[in-house]
Amino acid sequence: MTDASLPAQMIRKEKVKKSNRLIEYIKLMIKDPSAILGLIIVVAFLGWSLIQGTLELFFGTTGPAIALLPHDPFSYNLPMHLHPPTLTYIFGTNTYGEDIWSRMLYAMPRDAFISILVVLSAILIGGILGVFAGYRGKFTDETVMRITDAFLSLPALVLVIALSVMFDETLSGVILALVIIWWPIYARFFRAQTLRIKNLDYVQAAKLNNVSFTRLFFRYLFMNSLDPIIAYAALDFGNVILTYSTLAFLGIGLEPPIPELGSMASNGVGTLPTGWWYAIFPGLAILVIVIGFVLVGDRMQDIISNRINY
């Protein structure tokens, strides 16, 4: 073996090892039946959101955007109003005779989009501030931590309501409000991780090697703090969907005529003794989606913290 081929082989070995780790990870993941259930729910939800979301993005509310749905979610059908669930309308119809299942399917991509956007921005903002606080320590650390304290000691929903009302109750205002509320917990996580790893040998070695600050920051500190945070983030998608649907229930951030799971439930509560399917099914859909994320997140946390050894 010549010297020149050695690094190349090492690189190749590294790659093989990495893919093995991912496969191992997925194998561990699907050993638990509840995690499989969670994975199925999450994949189905995200897959559907991707397909339907793309169609909605390009075609709006007509044509191909509603071609995949069992019924047209926007056509009034007054003779069939508040029709109980049957084979044609599996979750019944609402007060205008619109099919509830089609409207739920139409609403889902938006929840997926918002949860992904909010969690990713929160990871980015919280990550940068948290790593910075943990790395610099002292006054920076104290300031950032007191600010996160202030946010974390309050019920998120109340603050989100106050902020989104100040942003005029628009959808983009709601997303902005959610991001503002969501980053502190990630700043906390990243800070704790950074404190743990900033004195490890490889970081010191990188500093001695004169690695630029940006590179040290993102490649060495940020990326290496990410592992346990991803497990929490998986669970957190569900939390964002819950909070967003609660806001929609209260009538914040709606864009009529686009349906929203929370606002459908809110309209359904108004019809309650008779139209129970209108109030219950959109809520159940949220419950199922959130449980999917919680099961996946729980399992990921177990794997990452090495709580299972089989």
Binding site: T246, A265, I280, L287
Partner: peptide, 11 residues
């Protein structure tokens, strides 16, 4: 824990 509050209250 994963249940939206409005579903719980409505049920």
């Amino acid at each position: 824990w994963s249940m939206p509050t409005f579903l719980l209250a409505a049920v």
